[in-house]
Nucleic acid binder design. Structure first.
Lengths: 147, 147
DNA sequence: TTATCCTGTAATAATTTTTATTACATGTTG
DNA sequence: CAACATGTAATAAAAATTATTACAGGATAA
């Protein structure tokens, strides 16, 4: 299993919004072209990012913009915004342990604490990555191409 | 997305093997009963654990046993054994970023390093959880039930 | 204000991944 | 040899992810 591509799509979108802010009118169609996915997928991710207060979107010809400074957006914010692990947690627990069995009826409670610890460690790391790091790095890479 | 239930099944299996070691002949069918999954699923997980040197399995009536001490088995060992994230990494990258677009053709390279950092943090945490912790806790919970 | 463009969202379908099932060959024990 | 278990392939069922179509409704500009 893997974490949905909605996450990398969201990061891609934010990067593109910033990068093309001055040169293009950024729409879901434009972004879909850059991402290589369907415009509706992009609009759904845009909706998530909008609800999370990360981007500003309005209808009509206005275009899309960032609602926060890149320094103030972390991987974690985006991960939460697109709801990568829903309410279920990072680990999918097998659904029907046998309640007649002493191991079966206790394993869930026993494991949950440790599983959550692992998830917490991942999320803590995500809080340390800022979108400004990503965008800066992308700009450097793009400049490097032309030399 | 979530990490496959093969992982929690594997932990469940190891716990049950240890718990029932003295009182039952532990077979894939027996384990499948405790886990609440198909015996073939259990046998596949058993195969993974066997290949990783975590359990000993033999055909015929011999039963299943642990190949290592519980203190020497970590979440990470099990996670690697059942190949939770295959070769692809924890994050599923959208597959077709547009190579005509400066953002599109650089985003993968730019993100990969940070995504790997997150994955590493998760795996590092998994290396700290020992199966002995789990089994001990399970035994305590089971004893608590009877009081 | 009206034509145009774009977002929001529902409904549906296609694809991929997980999980389950059936079947049987092979090895082991007594 | 008989009884039982694992190993594994082939297949199917179920669930999750991603894509597509369609259209209502807000925003903009002439």
């Amino acid at each position: 299993m893997q974490i949905t591509s909605k996450f990398t799509i969201a990061i891609h979108i934010i990067t593109a919004i910033d990068y093309f802010r001055d040169s293009e009118t950024v729409t879901s169609k434009f972004l879909a072209g850059s991402v290589g996915a369907n415009p509706v997928i992009v609009r759904n991710v845009m909706g998530d990012l909008k609800n999370a207060g990360i981007i500003d979107v309005s209808r009509g010809k206005s275009g899309i913009d960032l609602a926060k400074k890149l320094e103030d957006i972390t991987f974690y914010d985006v991960y939460k915004a697109v709801d990568c692990v829903s309410g279920e947690g990072l680990f999918h627990f097998h659904e029907q342990p046998n309640m007649e069995c002493p191991v079966g009826r206790n394993i869930h409670r026993v494991l949950d604490e440790e599983l959550l610890g692992v998830q917490d460690a991942m999320e803590a790391r995500m809080k340390k990555v800022r979108l400004s790091d990503i965008v800066n790095k992308a700009r450097r890479e793009i400049i490097k191409e032309t030399t």
